[in-house]
Nucleic acid binder design. Structure first.
Ligand SMILES: [Zn+2]
Ligand SMILES: [Zn+2]
Ligand SMILES: [Zn+2]
Ligand SMILES: [Zn+2]
Lengths: 137, 137
DNA sequence: CCTATAACGTAACACTATAACATTTCGGAG
DNA sequence: CTCCGAAATGTTATAGTGTTACGTTATAGG
């Protein structure tokens, strides 16, 4: 592993291609949209995309948007270290996604989990609505 | 249809069947699981299920779980009136879902929306983990 | 080199959801 | 009662999303 490369050092070819497609996109992409984008790069089957996505999500470079069945590149700096649970505000007009850290909401949900003795593993928070840009325009 | 069914009065036949399937189930059901449950009642195509589900979700009797692509009957009393956004704790062990009102979390997310001028339309909050019952057993 | 592991390629399949179009049901206007 | 429009329904086909299965290839460590 090279010393201080701020690029993703350990991505394989397919993972790099998928991650590139996501970072190059304005908004989230479905797995099949990614597949179409990467046909010229040799992608032929959805599994190639899903396998890369699985790894990228596991690493934390990509998030899955459950309410869209789509994926988006993490908007955090590469080396922000511990990437806590993120929340997403999805504009239903322009399709853009704003990722943010819902600290207070998370604390409240963790408190609920403690009280109910629910062993929390993963939290999904997705907001749907219209972004400021689309409201004013 | 019998006289004084204490079921919701304004449901159509298909809506009633689908709602009955969901209330009779231990946990959430996918649309196709509902379809299979209702084959003996004349259901033949997914659209029959999806149409009923659309209406039931619109009415507020049923919730869609985005992270499961499944549906669950609302656990609130039928006439609880304004049904605010609900949150769901999904046990990955037994599959049961606990619906609750995440008031504090919602307030925090609404505050974020105000600050970002994001016109919030719908909020999805889904917790994954292991319920108390499955942890102790 | 040898081997274990991860990544990759390909085809087939399973699951989730909607489009399109015809038909039926039902309540209100005339 | 009859007519009409809206809502609900029935049916077929198709689109979109995700996984299983199996075989091959690249990679790193001993
Ligand atoms: Zn992120
Ligand atoms: Zn927008
Ligand atoms: Zn509810
Ligand atoms: Zn459980």
């Amino acid at each position: 592993m090279t010393a201080h490369s701020h690029a993703k050092p350990d991505l394989t070819k397919n993972q790099g291609l998928v991650f590139g497609a996501l970072t190059g996109a304005e908004g989230p992409l479905t797995a099949y949209a990614i597949l179409d984008l990467l046909r010229d790069d040799g992608f032929r089957a959805p599994l190639q995309v899903y396998r890369a996505l699985d790894k990228l999500v596991e690493i934390g470079l990509v998030h899955r948007l459950e309410s869209l069945n789509a994926f988006v590149a993490c908007s955090h700096p590469v080396d922000c270290g511990e990437h806590k649970t993120a929340a997403f505000a999805i504009c239903e007009d322009c399709g853009k996604v704003d990722e943010f850290a819902p600290d207070a909401a998370l604390q409240s949900l963790q408190a609920w989990s403690r009280q109910e003795k629910f062993a929390l593993a993963k939290t999904t928070i997705e907001l749907r609505g219209t972004c400021a840009n689309c409201t004013t325009s």
